[in-house]
Design a protein around this nucleic acid. Sequence first.
DNA 1: AATGAATGAGTCTTCATTCAT
DNA 2: AATGAATGAAGACTCATTCAT
Lengths: 204, 204, 204, 204
Amino acid sequence: MARKRVGNKRERIIAAAAKLFGERDYHDTTTAKIAESAGVAAGTIYIYFRSKEELLVAVFEEFLGRHMDRLREGVEREKMPQDKLMRLLTLGLELMEDNPDSARIFLSQLRQSTKMITTVVKRSSRAYKDIIEDVLTECARQGLCRDVNVHAAASMLFGAFQSTVLDWVAHECSYSLTDMNGELTEFILHGICSSDREEESAAQ
Amino acid sequence: MARKRVGNKRERIIAAAAKLFGERDYHDTTTAKIAESAGVAAGTIYIYFRSKEELLVAVFEEFLGRHMDRLREGVEREKMPQDKLMRLLTLGLELMEDNPDSARIFLSQLRQSTKMITTVVKRSSRAYKDIIEDVLTECARQGLCRDVNVHAAASMLFGAFQSTVLDWVAHECSYSLTDMNGELTEFILHGICSSDREEESAAQ
Amino acid sequence: MARKRVGNKRERIIAAAAKLFGERDYHDTTTAKIAESAGVAAGTIYIYFRSKEELLVAVFEEFLGRHMDRLREGVEREKMPQDKLMRLLTLGLELMEDNPDSARIFLSQLRQSTKMITTVVKRSSRAYKDIIEDVLTECARQGLCRDVNVHAAASMLFGAFQSTVLDWVAHECSYSLTDMNGELTEFILHGICSSDREEESAAQ
Amino acid sequence: MARKRVGNKRERIIAAAAKLFGERDYHDTTTAKIAESAGVAAGTIYIYFRSKEELLVAVFEEFLGRHMDRLREGVEREKMPQDKLMRLLTLGLELMEDNPDSARIFLSQLRQSTKMITTVVKRSSRAYKDIIEDVLTECARQGLCRDVNVHAAASMLFGAFQSTVLDWVAHECSYSLTDMNGELTEFILHGICSSDREEESAAQ
DNA sequence: AATGAATGAGTCTTCATTCAT
DNA sequence: AATGAATGAAGACTCATTCAT
């Protein structure tokens, strides 16, 4: 029970930080507010984290750690590359929907610039893209894919995914994010233009 | 001549701010550094801008103003919806490549959260998406598009576009951004999956 | 045994504090570091000492208590005032050499200024000077001394003594402090004692 | 006049710092108190000094700069080594008496421990001792001195001098420091100079 | 219009001290 | 007696903004 409390505090600080960093932004969130929101004293934060920046990193890694694991698991459970791709998108949206605070910070901090932050952010979006690239590579190997530059494609896919989540967050999570699954999957799988176009161009 | 100088100063401040906001980030950029980089006194900034935040807004709008205009022009010069779409992507990449500083701030600030900033950012990415939506709507109207949710599609397209530029910036603009034009266009027009799949589904 | 342990702890805390206060300085030494170095918990210090300041006082008095006693003893063992003076210097250097940590804190803290510290420091350097003054007074009474202001002379003697030790500490105790005994004794004897003495000794 | 004000501010901050550092001690003196005492805003200190520590250094160097110069000048004006020595002591006491604040900080900080401080303090007490050593060396060369270890002797002399000033400061400068000149001079001359001198003077 | 010295509110962080266990 | 997690007051320093010149 004592142990539980300790764990509680670290978790509570991370949760409070995730919430606040997501709501406003890193610089607009004071350690005082985080402490207050976590229900601990100002100094307590520094028992668990060396600095405010390290707290941000922790928030980030905590979220991504769980996120990536579940994503990988889900993808690996599928056999067909195409199903993997679909699962990737579906699961991604679901996870974001379940952790709106973390989603918000994932999106909003993603493009900050302090040295340390950038490093961590890069590392974690790398993690994300790695999964995507793996799936795309597999698709390509089985001939299910156009002959794409996998790296570029992963990046675009990631961008489309992020944008979708960002829209949802911008609308204050007022609709179900998974409702967008169809659209996103269609976009990624089919492309936005009708196959008519391809037939046309094939006709030329 | 006095007037010219004045204009000069405003421009120089905006240019310096664009450069610095892009290099580091809004909070890590002090007005003192901006003033120094612009070659003016600290107080001078406040003759032209009510606050640091308003300066950011100005930087933003200045960039987007020119950007959007050229984008719209280029798109309108094309007749065919599909060509419009392609032109949109090509021009977009070109404009980013020509203004790396602005590109950087466009990307990095895009997801900050201060009240006013968010407002402006939303307004400007709205502008961007409006153009995209217009083009997509036209495509749809001519049956060149799958029956997409234009709003969502625009958002995804925008995300893929941003991601492409972001990658380039992350690689310190070390390659030509327009080289990615092919990939991006392919991605957007065709989708990443092989047309086999589409033929398959067409066969159904 | 429990009691022994208790005594142990108090001593260990004082020893750790003496070491650390000497190495860095009062303000740069945290109670946490003292506790760690003493191998006790942070709170334990406050079982034995009311405050950090009181710990400093204890360190001080502990050192001076032993120091003064041994000094007095040694001096009293000598019969001749002049021998007492010489013994005072010799013993003083020896004691410092044997307790470099305490020597360091004795010197470095000697001129701090916090209210309580000053009080204690004054009290303890008083103790030191008292012994010196006693010896000098005796010398004067027996006509072995120039007609000096005993108080001032004691102060100067003390200063010269301190400076000698301080030099040694500044050189990181890399040479034997007692090697300076000759120089110091000469300086003091000539400086304070009447030239009669010299004639006397010359007469021998 | 504007310039005068600027200079004024730097000087006022140094003066206020000298006063407060001397009264209490470095750590017990807050930058807020210094600013208040100097009649400037808290931030103003950081226009003139990079940090609180650098301010201490400045206080120190400012005092010692003037001090050393005047000391050297005075010493060089004398022809006879012995007169130089006497002048050194007399002038030293006079300068201290004229700048009680600086004297206090000179004495109290002399044995602090922060890295940078120690460096500066060492550098400056070195300066002091250099002058002393120069004079002593000259005395030795002319046979007016016992065959002393000049370095050690300089250190003792410095210690005796400091102690004298410290006593005065401890008595809150309630008597005239120069009144101690006779005692100090006697102590030093006897302590350092050869007894030949005494015989000489006895012969007169 | 321009300057840049001055301001002072606001922030992160440290650390002596307490207290429930 | 002992622990060590928690506290929260205090302090150095930053920086957007102002204003006398």
